[in-house]
């Protein structure tokens, strides 16, 4: 081989046309969640505001493109996607969704789902989206995103991390609302059964307004100990939730696109 060939190969390793391994952690859109929060902070709204809760993506990326386009036409401040950004946790799927969500017109954050944790999935999520636990405030309310995919870790007893959740669920200054977001809903077979009662108790004690989830692919809602729980439709069903926060009232609307 001529001497320039190795240099050409190193250079080419930076291009998208080459994939060195299905789980390679390399390039692409980074820190999507932190950048969405930053964009949100620049756009402080007074009074009422809206946000969108978007369901599982998996193998429905074209539907997600439609959803993102539909959301851009609405007056909403931000979007939270409920996990299962990918089907295989592959680097390429992470690239596709991080491109789509990271560059969308409305700031968009994502929770980690069980399908996003396979192979080097956790590293890929940290690279493209950031820490799996995230707490931020907007419009006087607090929003907490966390990892509830207990089965992926073999039910170790600290997924979800209730201590971290407890400290994030402190009082909101000004008496705003608390909203939590995690992929697997408490009570599901993939949620650590030993933590179902403690988390429902914790969320009730701290006065969480709504606990949002995905994973089951079908819309459902119920109230447990005075806290409302919502599961969103997966995106092949072409629906998402629009949440309107106005003073003490929180209204959830299921929207089709």
């Amino acid at each position: 081989m001529r001497s320039w060939v190795p240099w050409l190969l190193v250079l080419c390793a930076g291009c998208d046309v080459f994939e060195l391994h299905p789980y390679e952690v390399r390039g692409g859109v980074r820190d999507t969640n932190a950048r969405a929060v930053e964009r949100l902070e620049r756009n402080v709204s007074g009074g009422a505001f809206r946000f969108v809760v978007l369901g599982d993506i998996g193998v429905y990326q074209d539907d997600t493109v439609d959803a993102v386009r539909d959301i851009a036409r609405r007056d909403v401040d931000f979007v939270v996607q409920m996990g299962d950004l990918t089907e295989f946790s592959s680097a390429q799927e992470y690239h596709w969704v991080a491109d789509l969500l990271g560059e969308s017109a409305v700031p968009t954050l994502a929770v980690i789902g069980n399908h996003d944790l396979l192979g080097q999935g956790k590293e890929l999520f940290l690279h493209h989206f950031g820490p799996t636990f995230l707490s931020f405030e907007h419009g006087g309310s607090r929003f907490i995103l966390f990892d509830s995919n207990s089965r992926e870790y073999g039910f170790p007893g600290n997924v979800p991390d209730l201590e971290q959740l407890r400290s994030a669920l402190g009082e909101v200054p000004g008496g705003g609302h608390l909203f939590t977001f995690s992929h697997v809903p408490p009570g599901h077979a993939d949620f650590d059964a030993s933590l179902t009662e403690p988390i429902e108790q914790l969320q009730a004690e701290r006065g969480v307004s709504i606990s949002f989830h995905g994973h089951s692919h079908r819309f459902s809602t119920d109230a447990r100990r005075g806290v409302r729980y919502f599961c969103t439709d997966a995106l092949e069903i072409h629906s998402y939730l629009v949440v309107t926060v106005e003073g003490d009232s929180v209204n959830v609307e299921q929207v089709s696109f």
Binding site: E19, V59, Y60, Q61, D62, V65, F88, Q92, E93, W96
Partner: peptide
């Protein structure tokens, strides 16, 4: 690869 083929068949305009 398998994940590219599956995602292409489901999502031709993204992939």
């Amino acid at each position: 690869t398998d994940y590219r083929i599956v995602q292409f068949l489901q999502n031709p305009s993204t992939v």
